[in-house]
Design a protein around this nucleic acid. Structure first.
Length: 648
RNA sequence: GCUGGCGUAGCUCAGUUGGCCAGAGCAGCCGCCUUGUAAGCGGCAGGUCAUGGGUUCGAGUCCCAUCGCCAGCUCCA
């Protein structure tokens, strides 16, 4: 019986029953057939050599697409499992999916894999690839499958968990076989192992079965696979590029900050240059907050246990807090417990509560650069990105419910404006809605979520709804940015809170002279100043925009006799608020220039005899590999001042 | 917290199966050179080999613990 195949361009072709994706690809063109790894048949993915029995819309999946690489990587995972089972006969294998840029497979083995084991595994994989074994698809009844995988507990657990809807047909699962190796798998796979051309086994690490800390820890081996050697190489280069931007490395190279081990993990000290960077970011933040209706407040670092009981932190978050300091304990006195703050909210709430509030005062926006301390688990620490001590640019806004919509809208505009000022222009947002156990009036949740959504829409911000992902006390918006190399970072959060106004019994007097409960908005824009600077460092690879650069200008005297003039140049620039250094080192001009460039200073001014004589400078601008000679000092100062001016 | 890897000078690293001297480059300091756009030359100094214990005739090297770092897992209210 012939079947009609509709291609993506809408054209139709007739084939005999049992035609395969490979046949169709070959029919379209030999190059397509060569690049094909699988085929989509209506909504399903088929192996290239699986017969198509019915009329269908078909498209060929080639190896140089994300979908194609996904298949390649998944097949690579199978080959990895096959290799591990061959080399470590008792190994139990769990799951092995494709992930972004690669794949992994989880194993239970007696001893964790050593780096040498990984080398052997990769070598074994190459043998299997060289043998070019065909992947054969098969279907088994659940009972048969359990038999086949009788000595593989993880596979059995998966099979036993298969719902009738999930497998193939009602009580069937699909398996793939190549050579003697068989794995439970939905497929599809590349036609044969020889198609895996460019791959590498990269590392191993522990991982919990089903991602659950309480379940056994397995050994996960990661790998990467690409459609060609060239694509693999490009990936490795990309990794190197990312490593070069690592803020921990640049932080040391540019002398911004360090993490002295004497302090304890996750606690940074900021060096003078990092201090300038921070101060510049913080000054900008204070300035813009003041200009947009925020009141700047300051609160202490510690508070008594009672405050944290009211806020709920001690109940829900105690493990994340530095432990109590017990003060004034005596023979007959229990003493008082103090905790270092992991958050600023309760303090701002106390400011709100310090006297009775009128609706006329709302929205009330309190802003603080508040240092907080959280006892993060040691394994999650990551430079400035995840530290134990950090500074939140923290705001708490108290509004009436009627004001909520307008407030969220202007708040979102404010957030985006600030992020744009720092050079980010690609944003995505998540809107997290009411979870099962969300507290408070469900109607309020609905209205609040609508306000959040319409704020996102009016800001023209693309967003995804994360149903049920909100905190128990309110829905929220998270804003992500993309950095210069396409990585996504979560920065700002706007979090509604229906809980704390209750806990702390917040009120305001309405125009009708009734007592009402305000809505509270938590809002961090950078998240943490430290983390934000970490992200800026990686985004700009250390070459900060001129207004943020710790040193904006280096003046290089050609010879000792020009130092005096160089100093006077620095003085002129410095008097205009430009951050300038004179490099008086006994070195060649070339060396001093190189130093300034390596340190990513935006401007280098070289001064020699002719400049002393005519009051000029030679100027070199970062990123432009040319120098301009004989610019009048005033002119140079004017140009530099213009470029280093903060955005607002 | 868990699994694995790691910790030698300020930085990047070398130190063969435990053994005679713990080394190099860069940075630093001191000289010389007085320089015009990405590394001038020479010299000096710098390490209780993360810390503490152990094995051994002998430990940077082997074992244990602690601290710290890296990757991943889990976590991020």
């Amino acid at each position: 019986m012939p079947v009609t195949i509709t291609l993506l361009d809408g054209s139709e072709r007739e084939y005999h029953d049992g035609v395969t994706g490979y046949d169709i690809a070959t029919d379209i063109g030999p190059r397509l057939a060569k690049a094909a790894v699988a085929v989509t048949v209506d909504d399903a993915m088929y192996d290239l050599h699986r017969p198509i029995a019915q009329d269908a819309v078909v498209s060929i999946v080639t190896e140089n697409t994300e979908a194609g690489r996904h298949i390649l990587r998944h097949s690579a995972a199978h080959i990895m499992a096959q290799s591990v089972l061959a080399l470590f006969p008792g190994a139990k294998f769990a799951i092995g999916p494709a992930i972004d840029d690669g794949f992994y497979y989880d194993f239970q083995v007696d001893k964790p894999f050593t780096p040498e084991d990984l080398v052997r595994i990769e070598a074994k994989m190459r043998e299997i690839v060289a043998a070019d074994q065909a992947f054969d698809r098969g279907e088994l009844k659940l009972s048969e499958a359990i038999e086949v995988f009788s000595d593989q507990p993880f596979k059995r657990e998966i099979i036993e968990g298969v719902d009738s809807g999930e497998g193939v047909g009602s009580d069937m699962v699909s398996v793939y076989r190549n050579d003697g190796f068989i794995d439970l798998c939905r497929g599809p796979h590349i036609p044969s192992t020889g198609r895996l051309k460019a791959f590498r086994v990269t590392r191993s690490a522990g991982a919990y079965w089903r991602g659950d800390e309480k379940k056994p820890q397995l050994q996960r081996i990661y790998g990467t696979a690409w459609e060609s050697k060239k694509a693999l190489d490009a990936y490795m280069v990309r990794l190197e590029e990312a490593a070069k931007r690592d803020h921990r490395k640049l932080g040391a190279e540019l002398d911004l900050f360090s993490f002295p081990s004497e302090l304890g993990s996750g606690l940074a000290v900021w060096h003078p240059k990092g201090g300038i960077l921070r101060r510049t970011v913080e000054d900008y933040s204070r300035r813009t907050h003041a200009a947009f209706g925020y009141d700047y407040v300051v609160t202490p670092h510690i508070a008594k246990a009672g405050l944290w009981e009211t806020s709920g932190h001690l109940r829900f978050y105690r493990d994340g807090m530095y432990p109590a300091m017990v003060l004034d304990a005596g023979e007959n006195r229990k003493g008082e417990e103090y905790f270092v703050k992991p958050m600023n909210c309760p303090f701002h709430i106390l400011i709100y509560k310090s006297r009775s509030r009128s609706y006329r005062e709302l929205p009330m926006r309190l802003f603080e650069l508040g240092a907080v301390y959280r006892y993060e688990r040691s394994g999650v620490l990551h430079g400035l990105m995840r530290a134990r001590g950090f500074t939140q640019d923290d705001s708490h806004i108290f509004t009436t419910e009627a004001q909520l919509g307008a407030e969220l809208q202007s708040l979102l505009d404010f957030v985006l404006m600030v992020l744009r000022d720092f050079g980010f222009d690609e944003f995505e947002a998540d809107l997290s809605t009411k979870p099962e156990k969300g507290i408070g009036d469900p109607e309020l949740w609905v209205r609040a979520e609508e306000h959040l959504a319409s704020a996102l829409q009016s800001a023209d911000l693309p967003y995804q709804v994360a149903p049920g992902e909100g905190a128990f006390y309110g829905p929220k918006i998270d804003i992500h940015i993309r950095d210069a190399i396409g990585r996504r970072w979560q920065l700002s959060t706007i979090q509604l809170d229906f809980g704390n106004p209750e806990n702390f019994e917040l009120e305001y007097t309405s125009s009708e002279n009734t007592r009402e409960r305000p809505v509270m908005i938590h809002r961090a824009l950078f998240g943490s100043v430290e983390r934000f600077i970490g992200i800026l460092t990686e985004h700009y690879a250390g070459a900060f925009p001129p207004w943020l650069a710790p040193v904006q200008v280096t003046v290089v005297p050609v010879a000792d006799r020009h130092i005096e003039y160089a100093n006077s140049v620095a003085e002129v620039l410095g008097s205009q608020g430009i951050r300038v250094e004179v490099d008086t080192a006994v070195e060649t001009v070339g060396e001093k220039i190189r130093r300034a460039i390596t340190q990513k200073h935006p401007f280098v001014l070289v001064v020699g005899d002719s400049d002393v004589e005519s009051g000029t400078v030679g100027m070199r601008v970062r990123g432009e590999d040319v120098e301009e000679r004989g610019i009048l000092l005033d002119e140079a100062a004017r140009r530099i001042a213009e470029i280093v001016a903060p955005p607002r």
